[in-house]
Nucleic acid binder design. Sequence first.
DNA 1: CTGAAAGCGCTTACAG
DNA 2: CTGAAAGCGCTTACAG
Lengths: 337, 337
Amino acid sequence: MNIGEIARRAGVSRSTVSYVLSGKRPVSDEVRARVERVIEESGYRPSATARALAQGSTRTIGLVIPPMGSHLSIDQLQFVGSVAEAAADHDHDVLLSPSGRDEVFDRMLGERRVEGVIVMETLLHDARVSRLLQEPVPFVTIGRTGSETAHAWVDLDYAGLVTTAVRRLAELGHRRIALVNRPQELLDQEYGPAFRAQDAFDKTVAELGLGGHLVCCADDTRAGEECVRRLLADTPELTALVSINERSLSGVVHGLKATGRTLPRDFSVVAVTSQANAQGIAPAVAGADVPTAEMGRSAVEALLAAIDDPAKAPAQVLLRPELIERASLGAAPVSRA
Amino acid sequence: MNIGEIARRAGVSRSTVSYVLSGKRPVSDEVRARVERVIEESGYRPSATARALAQGSTRTIGLVIPPMGSHLSIDQLQFVGSVAEAAADHDHDVLLSPSGRDEVFDRMLGERRVEGVIVMETLLHDARVSRLLQEPVPFVTIGRTGSETAHAWVDLDYAGLVTTAVRRLAELGHRRIALVNRPQELLDQEYGPAFRAQDAFDKTVAELGLGGHLVCCADDTRAGEECVRRLLADTPELTALVSINERSLSGVVHGLKATGRTLPRDFSVVAVTSQANAQGIAPAVAGADVPTAEMGRSAVEALLAAIDDPAKAPAQVLLRPELIERASLGAAPVSRA
DNA sequence: CTGAAAGCGCTTACAG
DNA sequence: CTGAAAGCGCTTACAG
């Protein structure tokens, strides 16, 4: 079943069928009704491939997902879903490209399967971005790169979030605070969030004259427990911590409980993580909820804007969700303050 | 830059350029070299859209991902990645369709963007599958449906895994065992894994004359803790549990520790979860590692086989990873056995 | 071994 | 308001 067959059955030309479908040209009510009936009866849908070829647009965007086996989180799958949904809202489809599979990346770009690309988990120095900067295709990164060349990005303001969290803890009387960061290897790779969180933590702690303790932690529960045990052994006076490591968070909280701390009476925890994760831990963890849906939507909209008008200044969106106070956050213990 | 321009520059016909690219017809060494040089110099890549139209094949498969905000797990993102990688190994791309977005699903199928579809998180009665059964497009479900009509699927043998786990615990002397299942709402929706695990648990426990305790648990850490507390309050003689709920697992283990149990001396835990999750908990949890990569690969291969020969009997792959003994598993405590 | 031409299924300027 | 025709960029039978 194709447009020619519909035209024949309705007794009109193929162009008329096309215009009935697209609405780009007025069609008399009578003809329109006839064509629509035939389409209805036959269940005809135009071929996306043929349309893409004729129009020169695939209405598809590429999404470069992190390589397998690396630091995948629930947030990231949520993000993938939200990109697909936001794209659907704009009548676009999403094609997946696993990072590290250069053939797929090459095919998406070289063979013009996509109109633009979203890159997840961008590093400060990112080979994929270097590659994209040489191509004519618009793209948006999740996370900023160190690239001087301006390009569109959407990022969470880790520096701002960490600063706010430390300030709030200081207001509550906490004087010795730790930062639980992502794994050391990510810092080594210059992963932006780990990098900027650490920097902001150092500065804020210094500015407020607090005792600050940095620790990197692997992305799992067990590492969270160990990390807390080590921290408390080294610095028993610690009364609060800020975590940007969502996968170790429940381990961190359990580690605190295991060493006899009751939250928030003896110890406070503030984290950057998804709302579901923060509330899925007992006690519920205060902090900034990572707005995955909003990030997905912003990225898609920034990309579509760039596709629409490549000359326009690239959108750069820095999201900074507010700090939500939940049961894990309280005043510093009087005895220790 | 298109095939005509390459042909002109190389002084050959467009068909010759096409045959140099596809290798479907012999081309003299001299002509081939000339064409290849021009292609090389110009960086020409054929348009995927034009090729798809001419060949009648998009070389793209659709992946229907679970709706957002529902029970997403790390395993599932891994699975998405492994589908993309397996597809890439067979020169196919992956188009995403968020469940619940019927327009996207309709577009994928109706507008023939994809050659076939993989459906994640299938329910026993699944609207998406009913829809697919009426379409001519091949598809593979992850998880079996209750449909009598045969279709291709890939599933984990939850029944077998639970049975094996219970038997092993019985061998080790455990007499009262609990099953920590997925949330009640999934059972109500007739989610296959939850359903079959429960059924197998009931049967095996009865067969071995053990005391069996069923409990549904929400998909988070806090729920795991509460669930264990409730279980132990009701049945203090419990010495082991089997969990198929990966997201609550660390809470379950911490709950056990919080009630004074030392694993595996006082209590044993066996779980079906990803290897990373099992090993990211202290002590490492024994059980069957969900083989996400293998499931993704099997699904892609089953789908490509169905696309290749729709008449062939659909592949039905039941995976049953072996039970791995880790630190959480041991003999029943003597005092209680 | 190579080329001229038809065809894939659409869209859209051009004409009336 | 409608149609005939060219064109999107490939592939592939047909001919030589």
